[in-house]
Design a protein around this nucleic acid. Structure first.
Lengths: 135, 135
DNA sequence: CGGAATCCCATGTGATACTG
DNA sequence: CAGTATCACATGGGATTCCG
């Protein structure tokens, strides 16, 4: 991912002093994407759909604790952003299948990098939080 | 702590059907981290502090549009999670310096992967949103 | 300078009930 | 099966004022 750095500026990697305000970053879609994927359920839906297509109730059973409302809203949001495709199969009873779009699938890579970091350092964060609680 | 754990499972990369509900993922800290960094300002603060240490008002000026309240809350949150260190220099007038901890710095890598993705595909997301708006 | 306190609104999230 | 509708609550976020 960092290997093909042809024209994309490395926004996070250069340790230079900031000459200008981060309008460059506020205007850039990084925070946008983080906000989209940073909600409570989106990443879980993306991960599941990264394995195979799922039907609605299948997702509902697969993601423990999600309400129908939030599952629907999450799917709609991801669909709106072109990350998830919704396909209705005209059968009786009707079945609806959700799957990742190529765009959504391309997000799995960067997401997995963050996932690995989270798995590796999650306990450190938890430890840091514990310390704050006892002071 | 978890540094010795070399076989971190690739939660997002194996395309196998899900044998069990994602309790594995709901319990794992991935969504947690996304939620922490997925707010409106955290990533911007992390990026700035990735370049060099900053003082409070320096950050306030550097991040256009952030309120004092949110800057403080964001810094406190990142500090609580052990990603940012706050150092008070006893001078007159007092100066407070914020910097990334090693943990915080280790997050810049995965974050930059996501940032590159966002820069590359941000327009596709915008395009997908436009389509939804006109229907 | 580096915040804290307060008020207020928007959004996220959940529970429940209902439906084609 | 695959949702919608409604209510209710917690949190996020901004504006303003005040303080050591």
């Amino acid at each position: 991912m960092s290997g093909t750095d042809t024209n994309v500026p490395h926004l996070l990697s250069h340790p230079l002093p900031a000459p200008v305000p981060v309008g460059e970053l506020a205007a850039c879609p990084v925070a946008d994407v983080l906000h989209r994927v940073g909600d409570k359920w989106s990443v879980l839906v993306l991960v599941l759909l990264g394995r195979r297509p799922y039907r609605y109730n299948e997702l509902h059973r697969g993601i423990e604790g999600i309400s129908q409302r939030m599952l629907t809203r999450t799917l709609r949001g991801l669909e709106t952003d072109g990350l998830v495709a919704r396909t209705v199969h005209p059968s009786v009873p009707p079945s609806v299948e959700y799957d990742l779009t190529p765009l959504g699938r391309s997000l799995l890579g960067p997401l997995s990098a963050l996932a690995e970091w989270a798995v590796r350092h999650g306990d450190e964060i938890a430890a840091a939080r514990e310390i704050q609680l006892r002071t």
